[in-house]
Structure formats: structure tokens, C-alpha cells
Amino acid sequence: MTSGITHENNIEMLKFDDYRTYFLSQKVEYKPGTYYKYHSATSHMLGAIVHKITKKTLKEYVDQKLFIPLGITNYHWADAKEGISFGGYGLSLNNDALIKIGQLLLNGGTYKGKRYISKAYLNMATKPQSIKQDYVDNPNTKAIGYEYGFQFHISPNGSYRADGAFGQIIVIYNGLAIISTAQYTDYEFLYQKIYDHFSNIYEGNFDNEILNSYLKNLTFIQQNKDKFNLRQTFEMNANPLKIKHVKFSDDYILLTYENGQTDEIYYNFNQDSYGVSYFAKDLYMIKQPHWVIPNVEEDKLTLKILYIETPFFAEYKFKFKENHVTLEFKPSPNFLLNGFTVGSKR
């Protein structure tokens, strides 16, 4: 992260047919190696170098050397437009995979007795190699810290971590590998809580009977509500999602896009509703499995779409007035979409 490039604009990068060209088009403000600035395209160039040397994409190389030997096969890695794995972000791993990687790091590069990462390299990668100069003396980064290794963040207490976007992390601290897959993105708060809680490790005996009794009583109560009764189709004004029509029925909405593709989103006030719909996934808009939470208030219908095994969600809030509907779209933080409000054509 010390390439000397200080300006990052991922939306601008997506306009390029080759993300390596985007990186090379950036102005180098500082002598490489002297100034820290987080820059996803810089990490992508490391992946491009791996591809150049090994003749394998990052996905192919990591599959061969690490993932398949560890039994990590159920994951997604986004490709850049030039046809190689994107090295800046776009790797989606489930909890099982994160636990295996956490155990690998905790063991200093070994897993089930076999070495996969050089101990000497890992020692270098997890020790300070550069200073995040903008973080020094910042009261909001006391737990986050101001040091960086080789693609690992270093905290003042000596712990290190792999930070994923939007709350997905692996922290190695106090002899533990701590995994978080949350939608919470206040990292300073999150890390401070982790360090406070795990600074002393309880070594006594747990009462499994009390624990199991508590877990059995955990439940989610869903209130029964009447159906939302509306059978009407609206033509929408121009909007960033390029939704052309919205059709309402008793238990679903049908979104039709300008390119002819559709999203049929079912909802039910009395039971869970699952389906698939388009949302931002790293570099692209793709169909993803979701869970729907509906809510109705007089002239409003709100559908909160939670995308399964991701930190992403989207809220569609429809407000009706006579023969007109207004859509307020609010997505969770992501790399492609912003919120907007649009009305139907009159």
C-alpha cells in the first residue's frame, strides 16, 4: 500500500477495460515505499504480477497451493475485466473457510501439521512494514492502529488482522483467531470490543446445561399482519437501477429492468420468504439468494432484502398516493450502488 498513489476511485476504475491500465494511469504523488495509502488497484497489481510469473490467475494459484489442500471449495472470486482474478477485493469466503484460514495463521502457517506458508514470510507479513501516517495521533484509531504489514493490518497491542469490507474480519490476538462476519462497519468500536473482551481468557469449566437451556429459548417472534392488497403496474422514471416497471401483486413485486431482465420478489407477513434478486457483488450486479422482511404502514410498503452469507442488504420503500408511487432505494455500503428516490410516470 505504499505505491505512492494516493487517489482511489473504484467507480472510475470500473470504467476501464483493463484495471491494470487504470493503475498505470494514476499519478504517483510520493516515492514508492515512503507513503501509505490504501489502494485496491495496487493490490490488484500484485495479483497481476503473480499471474505474469506463474501463468495462473490468483484463483488458480491459491486453489492449487492453499484452498483445495485446506478443503476450501465453496467460495467466489470476482474476475477483473482483463480476465484475471481481481486482487483488490472480490473474494467471498464462508465461515468455515475463514475459520480454517484463521487456524492456519494462528499456527504460524501450518494446518493439521502441514506447512503451507513460510514461517519467515508470515513473520514479516504480520510485523509493521509501513506507517499509516494519517492514523497517527488520531483518537478514532486507537484500536485500529497505524501500522501495516504485507496485506495485514497491525494493532498497537501487537495483534494483526485481515480486514474484509463491511465487517468481515480475521483477528489474531492473544492466542486466538477471532472471526467476525457482521454488517457492522465501525471498525474502531468493533476492535476495541474484541480487545477488551479477549484480553483475559476464561479457563474455567462452562455449565453446558445452563448454556443449552439458554440457547433453546432464543427465538425470533414474527408478528402476523394482513396482506398488502394492491394489483397494479407502474412505469418508473429514469433511475440508477434502470427499473422500468414495478408490478405489485398480493404477495410479490415484479421489477422489470430496461434490458428486459426481471426480479420477482416474494414476501409473506407470516413466514420467512426466500428468493434471488440482483444486487451489487464486488465488481458486478448479479443474482444472489436473499431473505425478505416486509412491513406495511397505511400508504407504505417496505421490503428489506438481506442477501444470504453476505454483509449486503437493500431496502425498497414504496409510498403510494392516488395513482402514483415513489420508490426510495437504500442499499447497504457496497462498491457499486448508491441510494436514490424515483417516482412513477404520471
Rank of each mutant, 00 (worst) to 15 (best):
E60H: 10
I5L: 08
M45Q: 11
Q261T: 12
T2K: 06
Q133D: 13
Q64V: 01
E147K: 12
E29I: 05
H76E: 15
S332E: 11
T256I: 13
L122N: 06
K287C: 00
K27C: 00
K100V: 06
V276P: 00
I210A: 11
I305C: 02
L327D: 02
F234C: 01
M124H: 12
Y191D: 06
N259T: 03
T57Q: 10
I144S: 05
N212E: 10
V50L: 15
E82F: 04
L215W: 15
Q133S: 12
I117E: 08
Y22P: 02
S155N: 12
L336G: 03
I154T: 02
W291K: 02
R346S: 12
T73Q: 12
G102M: 10
D272R: 14
L122C: 07
Y135G: 00
S249H: 14
P139T: 10
D18L: 03
L327E: 01
E12H: 10
I5R: 10
E203C: 00
Y173H: 11
G343V: 02
N323H: 15
R161P: 02
K100Q: 07
D251H: 14
Q133N: 08
Y116I: 04
E264K: 09
G145W: 07
A48Y: 05
T233W: 10
N140L: 14
K119G: 03
I49H: 08
K247M: 12
K56E: 14
I144D: 01
Y274P: 00
T6S: 11
F340M: 10
Y257Q: 05
I201Q: 04
E12F: 09
I194A: 02
H290V: 08
D263T: 01
L24F: 14
Y36S: 00
E203N: 13
Y35H: 15
E29T: 14
S118R: 08
F335R: 05
L230F: 11
F234K: 01
L176M: 13
D17K: 15
F150Q: 07
K193R: 15
T126G: 02
W291G: 00
G102C: 09
Y22Q: 00
P311N: 03
E209Y: 09
K216A: 07
I172E: 13
Y284F: 14
N95H: 12
N268Q: 05
Y278F: 14
P294N: 05
P139S: 04
I308C: 05
T181S: 14
F23C: 00
G158E: 06
I243K: 00
N9A: 09
Y148H: 07
F189W: 15
Q129V: 05
Y266R: 02
G71I: 02
T126F: 03
I99L: 14
K225C: 07
D186H: 13
N208C: 01
L104K: 03
Y121A: 01
M124Y: 15
F152V: 02
A48C: 13
L58H: 05
N239D: 04
Q192D: 13
I179K: 03
T73V: 15
S273K: 06
S130C: 12
N268I: 03
F269P: 15
Q192P: 05
N338A: 11
